[in-house]
Structures are given as C-alpha cells and as structure tokens.
Design a protein around this nucleic acid. Structure first.
Lengths: 188, 188
DNA sequence: GTCTATATTCCGATAGAC
DNA sequence: GTCTATCGGAATATAGAC
C-alpha cells in the first residue's frame, strides 16, 4: 500500500470538495490513522502537496491525449464529459474550478502549476474542436479557440452550480452545451 | 463615515480576491486601524459578515431589475457585462465564482444565502433572455433557461480563467458568448 | 455604543525518536 | 526511512473596559 499515493488521493478529494485553503494535514492524518506531522515526511510543505496533486493531473491529461489520439473528436469529448458526470455524482468540482478562485492566495510554485494545468486543458480542448471540424464529427460557431473557452467554462461551472442549485442543472447545462457543438447527448 | 458599511466593502473585496476561507478579521482591522476583535461588535461571527455581503448583493440585484425593467433586453445585458468587465480590470472575481467553490465549507446560514443569490442571478438572466426573444433584440439556440445557465457560467468563468491565463481570455470569451446570443459586442 | 485585552482552538512546520 | 512530540503563530470568538 503506497502511503504517498494515498495522501495525494485524499488531498485531491479534499481540494475538490473543501478547497485548498479549507483542508488541513489533520484531515488526511485522521483517515490514515497517523499524526498530522507525519504527512510532512512525504510533503514538507502544503505547497508541495498541492503541486503533487496538480502534477498527477497533468500526467493524466497528457496520457489521455495520447491514448485517445486515434478516436474521432466527438468520442474524445464524450469521454471528457463522462469524467465531469462522475464528478457531479460525487459532489466533486474539478481542480480548475477549485484552484482558480483561490489563485491569488496560492503559494508561488502552486500558482505556476495551476496556470500550466489551465493552459493544458484549454490546448487539448482547442485541438479536439479543431479535429472535430476536420473529421466532421463536430460543428459550431466561431473559432476552435474561442469555442474551447466556452466549453471549458461550462464544464467547470456546471459542477459549481449543480452542487448549489441541484443536479438537474448539470444535465440542463450539458444538454445545451453539447447542442452548441452539434454533439448528440446520449444521456438525455 | 459608516464603519459598518466600510467593513462590508472590505469583506466583499477580500472574498472576491482571496476567498471566504482565506481572509481574516485581521485583514479588515488592519485597514481600519482597529483591533480585529472590534469587527465582532458589528458582525458577531464571520458567518454574519458573509451573510451581510451577500444580502447587500441581493439588494443590488433586486434594485437593478427594477431600474432597468423598461430597457430593451440587449441593453440590460450590456450593463451586466459592463460590471464583469470592471471586475476583470481589478482582478476581482464575482461573488458566485468565489463562494460556490467553497460551498461545502460555508456555515449553514451563508450556504442558504449563496443558494438564494445563485438562483436570483439565474432567474434574472432567464427573464432577460426571454424578454430578448420578445423584443427581438436577442436570438439564440435552445430555451431561455438553458441558455441563461451557459451565459451565467461563461461570465463567472471568464473572471476565473482570465486572472490565470491573461486578460485576453476575457475578451475572447465574451466575444464568442455574445455572438451566441446575437448581441453585438461594442468593445471588440 | 464602540473598542481592547485575552482566551481558546487549530494549523503548518521543525526537531528529533525509533 | 517512517513517524511523534512539540513549538510558534494565526484565526475566531468572549468578556469586559471606557
């Protein structure tokens, strides 16, 4: 059992439910049945832990891009949407939705990582929409870059708003969002 | 000079820059040159202060709806966009963008207020889009309610993302967003 | 009515035990 | 290499001074 990875798992969950500034080493230590100071052995500072969470997410993004490279654009997007649907069911928001509001309070190394993560998601989304135009599986108004920002924004916000206003909001938003890029929504 | 109102001003700024969990009574006391404990005279608990900030915002929303009731829908929307543009210039995010990510950590009375605020913004945006269809100043795909969620989401996210990725992102997002509802963007 | 001194709790981090 | 005892500081909140 990899304690280090277990700590990152718990930190990610805490960031996505309570936020970076609202969780403590104690929250993690309680679950692992060790003292909070023990976490400092694996991650000397809280910033190190935050960076580790984001770094792992960056790896997942890079990995998915490679794995899904041969799929049609609409299928790639469907897989992304699936991840958000899973988050919605658990009441988890995405890392960008949690970390960008706290951006100005984050320690410098973590700020840099968040910036990289935001850009990585945006780049991937833009590339995906471009591909969709080429392979004919997607259609939309405007440029891929401009539309990618709106898609990313809607996915991020759907988790924020549905947690406050109710789960139906998530379905309603995704329905209209996917229609805007002419992607058939399987779920509705 | 109204100390109470001054405290609410500072609290709103702090929530919109650092977030609810990252600011302290000390941040406010420092500016007012009093001890942090003095704030407790005006707002016994931090939750009371948060509720006061949201309550004032709710009043502003109600007031604007009345004031702008006779304007065409596109002009009403332009005024809302103007507010977000002002926020963007100062690096402030909106109250919903700041408080919904922290939702699960907020004290119960504040949670209730945030929910009411979210719903109030959504209701107003929905009504505005409905009016736009009637007076012919707006056109868009889908229902007013569904489109309102996407507009609200884009406005909220534009402040989050532009602070991290750069101001151009704000202009880019608003450009595409307003095109989606066939509203001419004066700024670009 | 307005504010200060003080109590209490909690957090992140260091030093050192095993 | 892994974890615990403990420090120092900061946060919210109470009790009471002026």
């Amino acid at each position: 059992m990899d304690t280090r990875e277990h700590i990152i798992d718990l930190a990610e969950e805490l960031i996505r439910t309570k936020g970076y500034n609202a969780f403590s080493y104690g929250d993690i230590a309680g679950v692992l049945h060790i003292r909070n100071a023990a976490i400092h052995y694996y991650f000397p500072s809280k910033a190190d832990l935050g960076v580790a969470v984001v770094d792992r997410e960056l790896e997942k993004i890079a990995q998915s891009r490679v794995e899904w490279a041969t799929l049609p654009a609409d299928q790639q997007l469907r897989k992304v949407v699936e991840n958000f649907y899973t988050g919605s069911r658990k009441g988890w928001i995405c890392l960008n939705g949690s970390l960008t509001p706290d951006y100005l309070t984050l320690p410098d190394p973590l700020q840099k990582k968040v910036k990289i993560m935001c850009q990585a998601v945006l780049d991937w989304m833009t590339a995906c929409l471009e591909k969709g135009l080429e392979d004919g599986t997607l259609q939309f108004e405007g440029t891929p870059a401009g539309r990618a920002l709106l898609v990313m924004s809607a996915l991020l916000s759907s988790l924020l708003l549905s947690r406050v206003l109710g789960k139906e909001v998530f379905d309603s938003m995704l329905d209209q969002l996917l229609k805007d890029i002419h992607l058939q929504n399987n779920r509705s």
